[in-house]
Nucleic acid binder design. Sequence first.
DNA 1: GATGAATGAGTGTTCATTCAT
DNA 2: AATGAATGAACACTCATTCAT
Lengths: 217, 217, 217, 217
Amino acid sequence: MVNDKETKLRLLKCGMKEFSDKGYMKASLRNICKEAGVTTGALYFFFKDKEDLFGSIVHDPLSELQELLESHFKVELEASYKIYNGDITIPEVPSFEGYEDDMEIAVRVVKLLFKHKKAFELLLTKAQGSAFENYPDQMVKLVEKHYLKMFAVMKGYGSADEITKEDEFIVHWMSHDQIDIFIHVLTHCKTQEQALSNMRNMMAYIIGGWLSVIRNK
Amino acid sequence: MVNDKETKLRLLKCGMKEFSDKGYMKASLRNICKEAGVTTGALYFFFKDKEDLFGSIVHDPLSELQELLESHFKVELEASYKIYNGDITIPEVPSFEGYEDDMEIAVRVVKLLFKHKKAFELLLTKAQGSAFENYPDQMVKLVEKHYLKMFAVMKGYGSADEITKEDEFIVHWMSHDQIDIFIHVLTHCKTQEQALSNMRNMMAYIIGGWLSVIRNK
Amino acid sequence: MVNDKETKLRLLKCGMKEFSDKGYMKASLRNICKEAGVTTGALYFFFKDKEDLFGSIVHDPLSELQELLESHFKVELEASYKIYNGDITIPEVPSFEGYEDDMEIAVRVVKLLFKHKKAFELLLTKAQGSAFENYPDQMVKLVEKHYLKMFAVMKGYGSADEITKEDEFIVHWMSHDQIDIFIHVLTHCKTQEQALSNMRNMMAYIIGGWLSVIRNK
Amino acid sequence: MVNDKETKLRLLKCGMKEFSDKGYMKASLRNICKEAGVTTGALYFFFKDKEDLFGSIVHDPLSELQELLESHFKVELEASYKIYNGDITIPEVPSFEGYEDDMEIAVRVVKLLFKHKKAFELLLTKAQGSAFENYPDQMVKLVEKHYLKMFAVMKGYGSADEITKEDEFIVHWMSHDQIDIFIHVLTHCKTQEQALSNMRNMMAYIIGGWLSVIRNK
DNA sequence: GATGAATGAGTGTTCATTCAT
DNA sequence: AATGAATGAACACTCATTCAT
């Protein structure tokens, strides 16, 4: 209205509120506009449609996250080779001496999630019905590719051919669970501090799970 | 129309299909009726409303599950006391010798889930917008109460007062994850056989996680 | 079901309740049947349709009333001729010495109304949307014919030709008001006793009104 | 569609027609829109719901009336004190010399009613099922409060405590009747002129009734 | 940049009524 | 005498979206 860009920001803010309160499907564009003090037409000047509004709200946080994860996986995969070569030994009883790397990346992810807490909560828990409803699945896929390689390495497989259907299944689950841990922490902790202090146990849990699976059979 | 109970069954079947395809909210009663070859009025003869139709589809499977879980928890809690008393020793490296009980109940749950596969998928993944949308959370709560007791026992706590906020958090997560494992197996395995063969790894994972958390700190 | 005629009576009773609670239009036959413990089909065995059910509830009381009124008007009209002939003098200040006849009939009407209080309330205040919605108007018409004659007599008109549009209008109003007095007493007094004790004032009011109109101009 | 405010006015007009023809409950918004040549959505752009449409049709006339009545009652009450003090004497035989005040206000009300004839007919006779269905009762209450005071004065009561249940009843009736007179005139006279010429008799009637009640007992 | 107006398809739900059995 | 099943039309209302101005 008055200021440049003000209206668009107000729409984004009110959209965030409405989507958070009701979820994507039940959210009403009418309501968002009423709350923002503009008519529905105005919304369509800034955004193509409902989908686009939702996308605009979560776009930037999402990009940051994607980058972080992708840049990480190169590092992690290299680390897995070190284990394979005996440079790092997997201890019988899992402790965290050898896993500070994992904590480090986890901490960075958590910090990023809390930097845009509301947007990520939207994206990860309120997107049903939108184009983003399967976004966590996409993240799982991203993680999964790398975890599968790590898994083969840790199992001591000589080639990818040795990976069984059951291996694939459990790796998919562990990837899924990794993502879920982040979502859980995001949605169940009020502050970043709480989240980080709980992450130690969460990581202990998932690494314990990993090792148990590796050694199993 | 033609004979006994046919129409109601057809409505339940078409409802199942529509709800599965589109989720509770986007499902259209008109569509269900059209598919079933009756008018909307007919649906309202058999069911109070949309909610009731959905509820009728999932009611019976749900009851069976509830019973199974509740009857189980008495057994599990008793088992945890045996561990505490030294009757059973937790091995350093988790194996499955001592955990056949856990597998047993898991197997029974999985069998039940697959007995009514489509209904449980509906209930557990397509209920958003209905009265059942938080059903998994309720199951988590059910599990959590018992896991919290077990956790205290395994940690060697003398009284419930020693349980910290962090303990509560991780136990909640593990309860959540236990439920998620079942949902995951249900939605990712086509047959009961596949599900059961993957459950061994899943249980290894979660138990490994548990033990790792118990020993941590 | 069990007894002969029992079901029909139950339907009439539950119909009375539903119509009284919600009015004719908003009353639901479904509800009436549910309350009566039968299916809608049963209702249609006893009654042609919604209208017929309503009619059956009010029929008997209505007939009694009609009879009473009709039989009365012969008497009243004859009385009006006596006044005209000077056999009875209209006092300057209206008192009730000369009007015990009016009170007598009024008392009989009130007693009849209270004998079937609920049915008459239905008929007179809850019939909107049914064929009886104009029933009070019909009663007004019945009264009006006779009041018009009385009016001419009391005015000292030599023939019906002297009746003006304004005369007709005020007579219509007074007829309407006479009926309204009965409805008012019926709906505002809990017991017949209260009704009768208030009727004295009501009759004083209407007779005072009559005389005032007669003397006016 | 075409020009300024046309559609809204058309909706109001067609709404007026539909409500008048069928009453509030049986009126169909679909019909109103069809008649106005717009889709149902358009109606909901201008009006919140069915109730709001009805309210918008009767709002302005209603406000005018409310104002008129409220401003009047101060005057009337003061007049009643004059009677009480003997400044004005109640004649044995009621005539209109002393009641020109009453006629004056009645005339003003009638003129107002006829200024918005159709809207008031709607409000007073077709509102059943809407939020306005008890509007006449509210008007009665408004009148009643003042009539009760007047009644006490005219009866020569020293305090309000002397008012009996029977007094209250008859005053309520007379208040009700006063309102009914206006409704009757509105619905039974085609033109304001007819209405006004009939009001003289109507007022004679009600004042005659009043006096008769006051003197009675 | 934004408004005001309007669309058109859709929603779940309710209703009186019918009729074979 | 009554059931159980079903019809078909109607209801008020909501929605995302469009577009001339």
